[in-house]
Amino acid sequence: MSLFSFQIPFMPEQASKFALEVDLFYIALWLITIGVTIGIVIAIFVFMVKYKRRHNGEIPDQIEGHMMLEILWSVIPFIICIGIFAWGAKIYYQMYSEPKESLEIFVTGKQWMWRAQHPDGQREINTLHVPVGRRVKLTMTSEDVLHAYFIPAFRTKTDVVPGRYTTTWFEATKPGTYHIFCAEYCGTQHSGMIGTVTAMEPGEYQAWLGGGTNEPPAIVGERLFSSLACNTCHTADGKGRGPKLTELYGKQVKLNNGSSVTFDDTYIRESILDPAAKVVENYQVIMPSFRGQISEEQIGQVIAYLKSIGPKDGDAAAKPAATAAAKPAAAKPAPAATK
């Protein structure tokens, strides 16, 4: 696709796989808009000049309406609209279908900064370094109010909502530095909650990752798991007072009210902050809430740890979302290995 990415005036740079299609769509819509507007304006001008009132007493011949015309100008716009809908829905579907294999970065929004943590442990604030040619999935949450992670050059934007995880993904196609904006109003320094995303060649990205001395989140998460004494109840042998959490990530869990829930990021987060909300079958509500004792970023690390001890790839019960980059701790992600 880099074949087509040339700089078009009035458009931000095209630096992701979505950019070209979004731009084509946008141009197509402007062509329709301009066509319709010019058509109507010309009609108005012609009628105005041609049918100018000649004298004060004139009454033009009356036309009640025309059924055929009404049907035409209802049905034709309707068909066009359905076309626009379909095209828009197709792009949206791509944007919201999580990629199978991706680099997962955990992003936290906070008044007024963006924190990101890479699977290798590298952290950054208000910047984001991503490799070109590799799908990058952002899992995001907010520590306070609503934010939105907006990268114009990639044509992606997703609200960052406190109390839940939202995800977005993109594949950068062109090395360079692009803007990150917060697009959902978040208070006084909203316009200062900006940053840059740097798309790098995979090699450079690896070098950049190596520059830090940070531990991978899964390792930090493992330490948290014992320092917060999670492991005293959630023992690996399954005989503790809490359910066993190994080999569980991405699987269905039966609850004490008869329903079941997927053991995923959202459920883990909820159970840490509000343990009574959904209790696993045959277990008591004895776990205290960790609200206030653990930050969003640390929750992300615990999740990364639980993911790393989750089921192995190819496990029949595992959902696709869970298999994606399931073991960030186990091995350095090998770029381009997917193709």
Partner: peptide, 13 residues
């Protein structure tokens, strides 16, 4: 434009 899902992701806000 704004009702078109894939485009609104970019245009929203």
């Amino acid at each position: 434009f704004l009702a078109a899902l894939g485009l609104d992701v970019h245009l929203h806000d």
